[in-house]
Amino acid sequence: MILFEHVGKRYGGRFEALANIDFRVQRGEMVFLTGHSGAGKSSLLRLIMLLERPTRGRVLVAGHDIGRLHPSQVPFYRRQIGVVFQDHQLLVDRSIFHNVALPLEIRGVEPREAARRVRAALDKVGLLHREKALPIELSGGEQQRVGIARAVVNKPSLLLADEPTGNLDPQLSADIMALFEDFNRIGTTVMIASHDLALIARLRHRVLRLREGRLIADEEAA
């Protein structure tokens, strides 16, 4: 599903955020990406989302060299990836329902079909009863679940999450991770960047460890 070949990323021509990264993630796998702050986790995810281009090497997703995508194809590529952000990036002036509906609106999905899918996604994250609320009326954990609902409403084959539990207490974090495991169980490839080592250790999935931009360990699922 994801293949990194000798990938390097420099910012501003000098600073090396990632160096010689090689790994492969199979379709349907669930992988954690870990390392200290500044290790390059976000940079790696941004390469997959095509928010950055590698300065060396190639990134292949589903067999396609994404570096060769024409800029006009990039939006359509992104539609196939669900992304969850640490700060959830919800639109403050839209209800929960409309936040989750956004990816469908972008795709021009017919409103009744969209409403059905939005409710299904909200139901999955346990927030169906809050669909009319504004993001600000929700707790941090609930907002993150809305972010997850928005990421999965399109039924993406790849789900990326950057520190999805960064600001949450251990119990909420465990709940969020359980949600990701649910999506993985139905076949979605999941890649989560996190520095919550204790939580990751408990979950027993494959772990990619980064340190100062290098891949220092690739620990298979226990």
Binding site: L51, F76, Q89, L102, I106
Partner: peptide, 16 residues
């Protein structure tokens, strides 16, 4: 700005 960045992240075209 935030709205634009978010919708572009989730695959909005420039036209959209």
């Amino acid at each position: 700005r935030q709205e634009i960045e978010v919708v572009m992240l989730i695959g909005a075209t420039h036209a959209f």
